[in-house]
């Protein structure tokens, strides 16, 4: 998403010839004051609810602050020192990374397969199927989490289905088991969001010119060969962008994971957001400063990932020939 800074120059009072530059700039403010009126809601709202919290959390991270009713006490870097040796924090950090590393490739890859299938000219009713696969995307993550606690119950349909299919011998509740709870969460997350990634891929596939397909077909390339050598290289720039979008999405899984497993059992699926929420809001003595420090480290992780992938996106854009 980019905005070029070029705009109709006429409305802004451009600098006149040398002698009049000063006067015309003053004049221009009288002409453009209304622009700032238009921006006022955004400046106030964005300043107070995005920029200020961003900066304030760095300050809060330096406080010992046991609740909103009292004021915090400055303790320097103590919170960060404590975080470095807090195995619960690193557990949560690790779970978030694991979630990312498994869930994002699964979502991006499976969505591509589905999109290729639906994009094929031979596939009937592809619009109807697209709607069905997209349906979970519009639903409320927290409600889905609760519904899946029922679906995944030992006596529920998924457990019985696994027994029926011979995958497990006895009914098991996958979210009540420390060995499988995180993976169950990943599976539900991929299911819920696959449809939107599929739409991204379908949009990307629209940019692959039809005659490229046909040329390859006439050259005698079979479907698979054509995909690897013709279609896939054209999709690489989109792969980078879609992976970035899905990675950010994988760092925002609080609603689903809190309602599905609440981080349990025994912290086996506690992603970093649940750790922050638990420390700040669900503990008997809230530790707002400590939770802020965790949030700051988590934010740094996000920024690092976003910057790394941003570089990737820029590279991808260049490959696409400047267009987006």
């Amino acid at each position: 998403m980019t905005i070029t800074t070029s705009a109709p120059p006429s409305a802004t009072g451009t600098k006149g010839p040398d002698g009049r530059a000063q006067r015309s700039r003053k004049h221009s403010f009288r002409e453009i004051w209304w622009i700032y009126v238009f921006l006022l809601p955004t400046l106030l709202g964005y300043g107070a609810y995005t920029v200020y919290p961003l900066l304030a959390s760095w300050w809060y991270a330096l406080l010992d602050w046991p609740g909103f009713a009292v004021s915090g006490e400055f303790v320097g870097l103590q919170n960060f020192e404590r975080l470095l040796t807090d195995h619960q924090f690193w557990n949560a950090f690790g779970k978030s990374l694991l979630f990312l590393v498994i869930a994002v490739p699964a979502r991006v890859g499976l969505a591509l397969l589905l999109a290729l299938w639906l994009n094929s000219k031979r596939t009937p009713f592809s619009g109807f199927f697209r709607t069905l696969f997209f349906l979970p995307v519009v639903t409320t993550g927290a409600i889905i989490g609760i519904v899946f606690t029922l679906l995944l119950d030992g006596g529920g349909p998924i457990s019985l289905g696994l027994v029926w299919a011979g995958i497990t011998e006895t009914p098991t509740n996958l979210v009540a088991n420390a060995g499988t709870s995180l993976y169950a969460g990943i599976a539900v997350w991929v299911w819920k969001w696959l449809g939107i990634t599929m739409i991204y891929w379908l949009a990307a596939l629209q940019t692959v010119p039809q005659d490229v397909h046909e040329a390859a077909m006439l050259d005698g390339a079979n479907g698979r060969k054509e995909f690897w050598h013709v279609t896939l290289p054209l999709l690489v720039p989109f792969l980078v962008i879609i992976t970035l979008i899905d990675t950010v999405s994988a760092l925002n899984v609080f609603d689903l994971m809190q309602t599905l497993t609440a981080g349990g059992p025994a912290f086996s699926s506690e992603v970093i957001e649940i750790f922050i929420y638990r420390t700040a809001f669900a503990a008997t003595v809230p530790q707002l400063g400590y939770a802020s420090a965790a949030a700051v480290l988590f934010g740094l992780l996000t920024v690092i990932i976003a910057v790394a992938q941003g570089a990737g996106v820029r590279w991808a854009r260049a490959r696409m020939g400047g267009g987006s």
Partner: peptide, 24 residues
């Protein structure tokens, strides 16, 4: 400057700001 601030904060996770937003 405004566009720069927008782009920097584009991917900010909600969990990151919930404490200051509550306090505010």
């Amino acid at each position: 400057l405004l566009i720069g601030v927008f782009l920097v904060t584009f991917f900010l996770p909600e969990g990151y700001t919930i404490i200051p937003v509550t306090q505010l």
